[in-house]
Amino acid sequence: MTTSRSRGALARLAVLHAVGVTLLAAMVAFATPSHADTTWSVVPANADGPDGRSVIDLELAGGQQVVEHVAVINRSTQPVDFAIDANDGYLTSKGYFDMRPSDATPTDGGAWIQVPEKVTIAAGATSVVPVTVSIPQNATPGDHPAGVTASLETISGQVRVQNRVGVRLNIRVTGDYVTKVAVTDVRAEYTGSWNPFAAGSVEVTYTVANVGNVRLVTDNRVLTSTFVGQSSWSDPSAAKARELMPGGSRTFVARVPGAWPLGPIGTTVTAIPSPTGKPLPGVTAERVAIDTTVWAPPWPQLGLLALLVLAFLAIRLITARRRRRIEKLIMLASRGAPQEA
């Protein structure tokens, strides 16, 4: 996959979603140094060149070291000096992979990566850059996301812009893997209809946090129940396939239709986690369910009932008045008195 950006824009890391696994795609950035278009891409590689991977997956024990490679491809018509850097990876609030700025000091997986500071690539040429990953002896088990970028600084007026293009590294340290999530901040709010014959809906806001040490995706489900029945919701969007990094969290909003305002509505939020990346035999991820209750007074139905009661009383009153008038007319007729019109 390729992408391009106009002058002054930051080329960011892109994400592919396939079979529930998030992959960092090969990218092409667009910049404009020296009034000439410069495009380049960065892809995983072996020592001979690009190897067809979209992301670099590593599973190493503490103390191990491995040399990987990325290929930087200069697609422009002039030689270019690219800065190479490695840093920690993270997920944005929408679940997309990104990297910390190049001037930020890495503190996790990015700190374990050594790359050359720069590389000069001739026009139309490809340079294979070695990426040395050294796992500390005391590294904690689990996932430590990182990335490697090739960047180019450009000047636009008084503004200096750094365009970065990179490859994602999924670094997993072997050991005791923990697949666990927590559901917090569950809030439910009922929205009713003034039509007494129409059901309302329950909007549920909740946060799912990855409190384990490996990447997870969660299948989130919401169930509402009253004494007359149940309504359920499951996330139909692609968002449910986006990862949660260890220590990360994401807030979701679900709207469950078909909820009748009949007093208390029980709401259950269930998160069903599953690990992403390489399968983890023998490691199970338990589902987590949290309950809450929202009150839904049946105001439209009570209003309809009040109208029916008033209508019934009005009909009875009118009927009683007519009966009394008829009885009076009959009584007057029996006495031979003139009848009033």
Results as ranks from 00 to 15, higher is better:
A285C: 10
D143T: 15
E153Q: 14
V119M: 05
G336P: 07
D219T: 10
R75T: 06
N87C: 07
D235F: 09
R215S: 14
T149V: 14
F97E: 00
R12C: 06
W40G: 02
I73V: 10
A25V: 05
G95D: 00
V129T: 05
T207N: 03
T319P: 01
A182D: 14
D51W: 07
A320K: 13
P141S: 06
G336E: 10
S225P: 01
L313E: 09
V283H: 04
S225Y: 08
A9L: 02
L10M: 08
A320E: 12
T107V: 14
A18D: 12
A285H: 08
F197Q: 10
I84E: 01
M27I: 10
D291P: 15
A241Y: 15
Y90H: 12
I171H: 01
S34G: 07
T268F: 04
R172L: 08
F30I: 05
M99W: 07
P79A: 12
E68C: 08
V15T: 12
A259N: 13
E153F: 07
T224L: 06
S76P: 05
Q64I: 00
S234W: 08
D143W: 10
S41N: 07
F197V: 08
L23R: 01
R75N: 06
N220L: 09
A29W: 02
T105E: 15
L244F: 05
T120Y: 13
G157K: 07
T107N: 13
I318P: 03
D98E: 14
S237C: 05
R100D: 11
I265M: 11
A71Q: 00
G62Y: 07
A289M: 12
P300Q: 04
G263S: 07
A296G: 01
L302R: 09
Q158T: 15
A47N: 08
P101S: 12
T268E: 11
P33W: 04
S334E: 12
L216A: 02
W260N: 06
T251F: 03
R53S: 09
L329S: 09
L329T: 11
D57A: 12
G263W: 04
N87E: 01
T319I: 03
K118Q: 15
V21P: 00
T120G: 13
P300D: 03
S225L: 06
S41V: 03
L262Y: 02
N213M: 00
K328V: 07
G147S: 12
L58F: 09
A9K: 03
R53T: 02
N210Q: 04
L152K: 08
S201G: 09
I272N: 11
D185C: 10
G95K: 00
L317Q: 13
V119K: 03
P116T: 10
T92L: 06
M27V: 13
P273E: 04
E59Y: 01
F97R: 04
P264G: 08
A306D: 09
V15Y: 00
Q301F: 11
N87V: 05
T268R: 10
W40D: 02
F252D: 04
